[in-house]
């Protein structure tokens, strides 16, 4: 059962920077109780747009906690511009990798960060472009196409591992399969 790296185990058993922050400059949230995991990220940002402190609160499995902990460690001392470039792979790499089925935990970190930065910069999150595919997890066709291309995903299971799309009610599984097949045909 334990396919986790020592680093994942360490960040789960001894998570860094846990807790609600007093007067944060930015907060980013993602996930929900229904999804089975959720992350709330708190940032302190100084006048030169550098992150001086980061804390988190997470509901989820060991890799969700470890990904959150890793994210806060990566972020401390970083400028917002650099932070905006962080991807889920950076989080996974910091932890020495995550099992494929747990990659969505690192995606959750990336999403919470994006939401925090957008909130700080006053960017309204408008309706996402593309067509909604997975209603349970709020994932569009464009997001799925993007993930399939970038990560060379091969199947619906892969897409579910990365984005959770298709992992809820399952109604969109056929649609995801179509998308995966069409991207593969194009490639």
């Amino acid at each position: 059962m334990w396919e986790y790296t020592d680093k994942v185990k360490d960040h789960f058993l001894n998570p860094r920077n846990v807790g609600q922050m007093e007067a944060p400059d930015a907060v980013g949230e993602t996930g929900s109780l229904a999804c089975g995991d959720a992350l709330k990220l708190f940032l302190k940002i100084n006048d030169s747009e550098r992150i001086t402190d980061a804390t988190f609160m997470t509901f989820g499995c060991a890799s969700a906690v470890a990904s959150s902990s890793a994210l806060t460690e990566i972020l401390k001392g970083m400028t917002l511009d650099d932070a905006a470039k962080i991807t889920n792979d950076d989080i996974a790499d910091y932890l020495g990798g995550l099992p494929k089925a747990k990659m969505h935990c690192s995606v959750m970190g990336q999403n919470a960060l994006k939401n925090a930065i957008n909130a700080y910069r006053g960017i309204q999150i408008l309706e996402k472009p593309g067509t909604m595919v997975c209603e349970c997890f709020d994932i569009t066709d464009l997001e799925i196409i993007d993930a399939v291309k970038k990560n060379h995903l091969d199947s619906v299971e892969d897409v579910t591992s990365y984005l959770k799309a298709g992992g809820g009610c399952g109604n969109c599984i056929d649609k995801i399969e179509e998308i995966v097949e069409s991207v593969k045909t194009q490639a």
Partner: peptide
């Protein structure tokens, strides 16, 4: 407000073996 796998892993640290009611390995966290 807590998640099964995390509970199992922390109990595992104390040598306790049990199961969780959520399949957190399938990507679907159902």
């Amino acid at each position: 407000a807590v998640e099964g796998e995390s509970i199992l892993l922390l109990m595992d640290q104390a040598g306790i073996c049990a199961s969780s009611g959520s399949a957190c390995t399938s990507g679907s966290l159902d």
